[in-house]
Design a protein around this nucleic acid. Structure first.
Lengths: 212, 212
DNA sequence: TTAGCAATAGCGAAATAGGGTGAGATTACA
DNA sequence: TGTAATCTCACCCTATTTCGCTATTGCTAA
């Protein structure tokens, strides 16, 4: 018997969900709440396996509530449901620990299947949501493309790299087997190309733009 | 009519897929290949909307093939199918540009639905795969967590932040409405806590460890 | 072959940074 | 109430950095 808690501010929807869940043989509604007041106490008194969470709620929103639930009940699975299709929402929900993300346009049976899926260790997602997740995944994880190269020469890049490592002019000169004055010249040219006026600025820019 | 190309080294499976697809009214098999030899030429001669890609193939594997397809035909959706449940595979497939990832245990109708889903802009995923994707997502993206704090005080963090922005002692002092000597003191203390001896080193460390 | 660029190197001046020492004021806490 | 931490400031001295100008060598493309 899968115990499910419902968080949904719309009273009509909330009651509809409760009826839908209780009508299924293997699912039971352990509680239905309009907001996140006393969330922890409520879940302690009425334990559940899965939380069906509305993302748009007055007061504490679904994302924050998800975090809170995960903090206090790490074993509970959270199924987010929303009418929105927003990248930020999706991203934050996943990071908060949601185990599934479905659109409210899902059919009644879809809800029940999704609840069974999360409980079985899956993460049901509306295909459209899944596409957004994959795109986000690629965007955020992939290359971190070096935007500018600033036309630095090979030697200048070497110098900049060593500068980023925190070395002094002397040490850089030693590393590259050139004189300190040469390093000075290179750094002067680097500063001009990056439009900066100090080592810290150069390092900051180099790291942010992944030049090194 | 959705045109689908099949890449599958097992002859029996390949033919089964072809029959399955052609039997659907809205789907047509545009080609079925046992390997990725002449992949680009084949797809050029027999254009398709969706590729059904086996991930385990002799010669070029499905991941590399996915990359290749995406390079030459960016608009083509790729549906990965596999018997494996491996995080590395999943991760690489997504980065290569796959639009869906289903297990081979899927039902015949499941295949057809998945193909329709990708064509419609969705990303069908077996719930178990989806769970792995979400976990990977969290693991790889979360590290936005500052690992060390180095016990910097509030003021020291402010100074470090301004240092990262490339400001000089003077400017930092002006920004914080304190004397340059105070800034020096803070920076001395910061260097001691971070175990560095120059601004460039401090900036480098601060950015890498996301202290600021 | 001339022009341009990259890399090298030097000199000098001015500004900035780094490190030592000490110390007063405020706040937090046991 | 005493102690510790934090924030503040000052003075001194040296090292390093920044920036100006100049100049040679080698390589390459017009």
């Amino acid at each position: 018997m899968i115990q499910v808690a419902i968080f949904e501010d719309n009273k009509h929807l909330r009651e509809t969900f409760r009826l839908l869940l209780d009508q299924a043989e293997d699912i039971q509604c352990a509680g239905a709440y309009p907001d996140c007041i006393n969330l922890v106490e409520n879940l302690e008194q009425h334990p559940c396996d899965v939380v069906l969470m509305d993302i748009e709620m007055p007061g504490m929103n679904g994302i924050a509530a998800t975090k809170l639930v995960k903090e206090h009940f790490p074993a509970v699975y959270i199924l987010i449901q929303t009418v929105f299709f927003d990248d930020e929402y999706i991203f934050n929900a996943i990071c908060a620990g949601a185990s599934g993300y479905i659109l409210k346009s899902t059919t009644p049976d879809g809800y029940l299947d999704s609840i069974r899926d999360v409980q079985a260790g899956g993460s049901p997602m509306t295909p459209g949501i899944a596409r957004r997740v994959l795109e986000l995944f690629k965007d955020k994880l992939q290359p971190a493309t070096p935007v500018h190269d600033y036309d630095l020469t090979i030697q200048e890049k070497k110098v900049l790299k060593l500068l980023v490592e925190g070395k002094s002019y002397k040490l850089i000169a030693a590393d590259l087997f050139v004189s300190v004055d040469t390093v000075k010249t290179h750094i002067r040219n680097i500063y001009a190309k990056l439009h900066v006026h100090s080592g810290t600025e150069a390092v900051s820019l180099a790291l942010r733009d992944k030049i090194v």
